[in-house]
Design a binder for these strands. Structure first.
Lengths: 107, 107
DNA sequence: TGCACATATGAGCAGTCGCTCATATGTGCG
DNA sequence: CGCACATATGAGCGACTGCTCATATGTGCA
């Protein structure tokens, strides 16, 4: 392949910011704890201590992970008294899970 | 939430192996170098040195990443003489990228 | 066969990750 | 207000990641 072709191919690739944002999103999804959290939240809204209860983790560990998920706009929060309820922020995550599972299941 | 409800919710969640496989797949996608490699391969089949040329990386670095992608069944190989050509192994990756970009673009 | 090229692999190092533990912030209620 | 509860945050530790550099494996050709 000529270096001239490198240039032509490069011009059609994803931009650096897109690549970074995409990788960042997948990185957040690439951890069993966060997958489990998102799986739970795809079924019901839940507060931190209940998430911890369901998943068998400390509230602190869950809170740390939720911060990441919040920063990535994967979950949103709603305060009700002392508790803060978490829910999925958009439907793309469910789509990503479904598509990811399809890939996984054909191994 | 009662501990009885924990049990009910838990029963409907993804199995541990599914969670592990899903997280593993996303983890592989969660790196800019691998995203760039897959982006290139979504447009054309390419051998290691040309991938390195396009991406401005050493052939060794590319080869290390390709091994991961191979193990995860995200790319497949075809030998032609001394060169080994890499291509996407299935269409789900393109779908995952598209879905991921949709999420990213609404930030 | 022997040499050059293409790719793969292993060791090792700097940077990152996910947890725990301690502590801070924020809210409701007496 | 003052205390208990719910959540968030920071430091720090062991485990892991992605690269480089050196080396091994595999292929084509004289």
């Amino acid at each position: 392949m000529s270096s001239r072709s490198y240039v032509r191919l490069s011009a059609s690739l994803l931009s650096d910011p897109s690549v970074a944002a995409l990788a960042e999103t997948f990185k957040v999804l690439g951890d069993t704890t966060r997958v489990r959290i998102l799986d739970v939240l795809s079924r019901t809204e839940l507060c931190v201590q209940d998430l911890a209860g369901v998943l068998g983790l400390t509230p602190s560990a869950v809170s740390h992970q939720l911060r990441l998920l919040r920063t990535s706009r994967l979950v949103r929060t709603r305060r009700d008294g002392r508790q803060i309820f978490y829910a999925l922020d958009d439907d793309h995550i469910v789509g990503l899970f479904r598509q990811g599972l399809e890939h996984v299941q054909e191994l």
